[in-house]
């Protein structure tokens, strides 16, 4: 008797499991099951392989600085490892660093005659690690196991790891609202025929689109302000910072509305949202750790948003120095907004 009951239960469980899998397949959740591993695999492929560390590091030397002969000759002779740039003074070197014209600036240390100070943009980056490794290898070849030539590393970007990682969290919030919350909200209105009901009123399509856009921007700004209040980080120029939060949330909210309008129901919107969320988040956030990703990421609007927030927070940049980046974000926002307008006008899947 017991066996029969268990058998029946198992049958029902199998039936229901198969039904759940069929639903997952039908509402495209299954796509995520294949997409996520594939995406991670692709990201790994894009993150630098070992050979990348042998790419030339661009080192800045100050013309007025008197470097130890042995160090200077070693660096010069290692032309397959370093590319040397001459800067007139420290300030110019720092500017070049911020503009990413060089990867590191070398100064002689005041404390120790034979040691150097390496100035980099960010301590915890693949560039810094790579320069240190190259110097250690060269020094070992020339001098054996003496004290390290580089005695100190100075980062131009101030703040601890918490502040350094703050722009990634900001990017996450903006993308979460844009790619997960907004598309689901739009698709829900379509699925429950609420949009149909609203279109039965004298409301214009563009008004509905603007309302969705504003709600996305408001949600993002509120989340960022809340986070800012909790963490209390100095975010550089306040106008530029919030201008970029606004521009970024406009861009990704418009993008999200477009994605939501492409879906018939919430499940599809969720799947599509994740499919767009990960490729926008990871390459941008990981670009600090990989040269290959740094070359791929600029195609993504999220990268320009992330870089701008970083530049405003750490390098005292302002909107006026970042005109290409905000133009790009606005362009993506306007384009996706325009496509959304066309979709709603055509009553696509409504």
């Amino acid at each position: 008797m017991m066996m029969i009951i268990i058998k029946m239960m198992l049958k029902n469980i199998i039936t229901l499991t198969l039904n759940d899998l069929a639903i997952a397949f039908k509402n495209r959740t299954m796509y995520l099951i294949f997409f996520i591993p594939f995406f991670i695999f692709l990201s790994f492929k894009l993150i630098d392989h070992e050979e990348t560390s042998f790419q030339k590091a661009r080192i800045g030397l100050v013309q007025t600085e008197i470097y130890t002969q042995i160090i200077l000759q070693t660096i010069k002779s290692a032309d397959s490892v370093f590319k040397i740039f001459r800067v007139s003074n420290n300030e110019e070197g720092k500017t070049w660093l911020k503009e990413k014209k060089i990867d590191g600036l070398l100064l002689m240390s005041d404390k120790n005659q034979n040691s150097l100070i390496l100035i980099v943009l960010k301590k915890e980056s693949y560039v810094t690690i790579s320069i240190i490794q190259k110097f250690a290898a060269l020094q070992k070849m020339v001098e054996g196991n003496n004290l390290n030539w580089i005695s100190d590393i100075i980062s131009l970007q101030k703040g601890g790891i918490q502040k350094q990682s703050f722009p990634i969290w900001i990017l996450m919030i903006v993308l979460l609202v844009g790619f997960i919350i907004i598309p689901a909200q739009v698709a829900e209105e379509k699925e429950k025929k609420l949009l149909q009901a609203l279109l039965q009123t004298p409301m214009r399509e563009i008004e509905w689109l603007f309302a969705k856009l504003f709600s996305g921007v408001i949600l993002t700004v509120v989340a960022v302000i809340f986070l800012q209040l909790l963490c209390k980080f100095n975010f550089g120029n306040i106008f530029s910072y919030f201008a970029f939060i606004g521009i970024g949330s406009f861009c990704f909210s418009a993008y999200g509305i477009f994605l939501g309008l492409l879906c018939r129901n919430q499940a599809s919107a969720r799947t599509l949202g994740v499919i767009f969320y990960l490729p926008h988040l990871l390459p941008s956030a990981l670009s600090d750790f990989s040269k290959t990703l740094t070359s791929v990421a600029p195609f993504l609007p999220s990268y320009h948003f992330y870089e701008s927030i970083k530049a405003i927070m750490f390098d005292e940049y302002q909107t006026s120095n970042l005109s290409f980046k905000w133009t790009y974000l606005l362009l993506v926002g306007f384009l996706t907004f325009f496509f959304s307008y066309i979709l709603i006008k055509k009553r696509f899947l409504i």
Binding site: K192, K193, L194, Q196, A197, Q200
Partner: peptide, 30 residues
């Protein structure tokens, strides 16, 4: 839309809100 009132087969109302809220929302739009 001012000349036509359409009642769909399945009522498409904002479920999480009250009757009054729903009517007020549409009254505002009209």
């Amino acid at each position: 839309v001012r000349k036509i009132g359409f009642v769909p087969e399945t009522p498409n109302l904002f479920d999480f809100f009250s009757v009054e809220y729903n009517l007020k929302l549409f009254a505002r739009l009209f």
